[in-house]
Each structure stands twice: as C-alpha cells, then as structure tokens.
Amino acid sequence: MRLLTAVDQLFLLLESRKQPMHVGGLFLFELPENAESDFVYQLVKQMQDSDVPPSFPFNQVLENLIFWKKDKNFDVEHHLHHVALPNPGRVRELLMYVSKEHGRLLDRAMPLWECHVIEGIEPEVEGGPERFAWYFKIHHSLVDGVAAMRLVQKSLSQSPTEPVTLPVWSLMARHRTQVHATQPAKRSIKHILKEQVSTIKPVFTELLDNAKNYGDDGFVGTFDAPMTILNKRISTSRRIAAQSYDIQRFNIIAERLNTSKNDVVLAVCAGALRRYLISMNALPSKPLIAFVPMSLRTDNSISGNQLSFVLANLGTHLDDPLRRIELIHRSMNNGKRRFRRMNQAQ
C-alpha cells in the first residue's frame, strides 16, 4: 500500500456533490480513410476483451482515505462507456453529454477514473471524415494536470501508422522500461513529517518578503480579490463550452510582447471577463485575481500531485489591453520568482 500525501487527501476532503474534484480531457479524432462502418465498435470491443490487467495508477483504489492499494477486482464495464450521440451529432451535443458526465462523482469504492468513447459526431466540414471522441476523467487525488497529460501522451499512438492493441489503463505494458521512472518514490511517515517540519522557516521567510512587497501592483495578496457577481456558491449543474484559436496567433503575440503563451491566454480570459462584467454593469473597481495552477514536477512521474498555485492580477480595471497583459506578465513573474526559491514540500 502507498500512503496518500496531504495534497492528495485535500482533494478528497474538499469534494462534495456540488464540487467534484476530478479532472477531465476531451479528445476529438477523425476516422481513418476507408475505415469500416463499425470501426469505433471494434475499437471498444478490443479494449473490453483485453486480458491485460490495469497498470499503475489505474489499478489504485482507496483504503480508508489514508492509503492507495492495488485493486484486485477490476471491472472494465464500470470504467469503460461506449455511447453514440443522437442526430445531428454536432459539437453542441457532444459538449452537452460531457457536461452531464463531468458533473458526476466518481465511485470511491472503485479506482477513480472513467473512459467514455463517443461516436456519431458529424464531420468538421461537409463531406469530410466522420469523427469520434474520447472523454477521460480521473480524480485529482491520483494525478495533477501534467501527470494526466503524460498519461494521455503515453496511451496514444506515437505515429499515424502505429497500431495500438492495448487500452489506456494498461499503457504501462507498452512502456515496461519506464515503469520505475514514472512511479512515485515510496516515502515513510517519518520522512514526510521531517520534510514538512523543515518547511516552516523558509515559508515564514517568504511571508515576510510578501509583506515588504505589499503595495506593488504586480504583487497579489491573499485577500486582494474583489467581490463580484461570479463569487457565488456553485450548483451541481455543469455546462461546458469550447472555443478554438490558432496557436500561432498566441505564439506571435507572446514573441512580440516578450511574454509567455500562458500570459497571453490569461490576457484573453481577462479581456473576456472584463467585457462580460461591463455588459452586466458589474465590473469591480479592483482587478480580478486568478488562481493559476503551477507545476512543480521535475521528474518523469505520471501520478500524484506536484503543483501549487500563483495568484495573478488580471488587470481587469485597465481598459488598455497592452497595459493589462504587461501587468499580468509582471504579476505572474512575481509569483514564479517566489516559487523558484522554494522546494516542492514548501
């Protein structure tokens, strides 16, 4: 058995019916040229009939909210779902289905993940190839965002011509030489407690440094976020919307303004939020604050949580988009600089 970390337990303790704590990804695929009409069915059947057992972390189940243990009664029917969208099978219908499924809690008596294969999606352009989707969700206590993306990357074909005969939950059978490198190191309770105690002094030092920098608009304090119409209790309802952008546009903006692509994404979100709040006559005089996840992962592992969060000033009080992105960039760099002085335990 493997001991849950404090962060892993936090994601479980914070979970409620109105606040699920899993992460999910939606992937769209085009059917291969000259594919048979039952291509997706055969793909699902191949996954269902696979006699290869699930590998880490897909074989982990909770034990008293304290340990992870290996699941000895894996039931593929519980985790794998095959559905077809009703006509006309647009992206709208796809997102409605995913919205509903993303709002459902995962069963803690089972390994905390699900895989949905969705067919019946219309072509992107008239006359183009039909499409199918893969929606995957897994609990945040098992993986963070970087680990989840590594799982997806390892589970898919590495080239258009490479056949994949194993399901995603047996992906380590395809990467046997990497098993030890991708699993987290085992740590004793004594080691964990010693590590946590050693963080007291450097964390206190950072708090003092934060107090010295208070007043700089690039610095964000814990209580700087204003009250808005968005700060409300959430319900159980979920509605997912999607918007596509050409990544090259973000690359060009980031290069010309000497910022990161993440800063550009935050600036786009900030502009949209500012416009929405103005339309509702509800834009606060103080800038909105974003809670931005930041990966602390320095190894090749594909499980657990190695992340923290940066408070970023979104500059929504500024009407000039260039001043807004400059403030976002400065605020993000301020947060990153503080984290570079700290280790994962802190």
Rank of each mutant, 00 (worst) to 15 (best):
D319N: 15
T182V: 13
S235Q: 11
I247E: 06
P184W: 09
V143G: 07
L95F: 12
Q9E: 14
V152M: 11
S55I: 07
H22E: 03
L193K: 12
V91S: 14
G145W: 09
L283T: 06
Y41F: 14
V52P: 04
H180F: 13
Q178G: 02
S50C: 12
K194S: 14
L85S: 04
R275K: 15
L151C: 01
K194R: 13
H317I: 06
V117Y: 01
A290W: 03
R174Y: 02
I121Q: 02
D246N: 15
A84D: 03
R92D: 15
R150I: 02
E195A: 14
L112M: 04
L171W: 04
T5P: 04
P86C: 10
W134R: 08
A267R: 01
L322S: 12
R341N: 08
L62Y: 09
S285H: 11
L62D: 06
R337D: 12
V164R: 04
T165C: 10
P287Q: 07
I252Q: 10
V268R: 01
N313K: 09
R249Y: 09
K100S: 08
Q196Y: 14
D216L: 10
L171P: 02
I234G: 14
S295N: 00
E119G: 07
Q19M: 11
P32R: 07
I234Q: 15
V203F: 12
M332Q: 06
A345G: 07
Y276C: 09
F11T: 07
D263A: 05
N300M: 15
S16V: 05
L80M: 04
F29S: 00
M294T: 09
M280H: 12
L26F: 02
R338E: 06
N59V: 02
R108C: 00
P202R: 06
L314A: 01
S99R: 01
E36R: 15
S157A: 15
Q248I: 11
K336W: 06
L43T: 13
I328W: 04
L12H: 03
F39Q: 11
H81Q: 07
V179S: 06
Q48V: 00
L207W: 10
I289W: 08
V152F: 11
R323G: 06
E206M: 15
P226W: 02
Q46V: 00
S285D: 12
M96T: 13
Y97C: 01
F67P: 00
N281I: 01
E130K: 14
D75T: 10
S301E: 14
C115M: 10
P86V: 05
T222Q: 12
N258G: 07
R341F: 01
L288T: 03
A35Y: 10
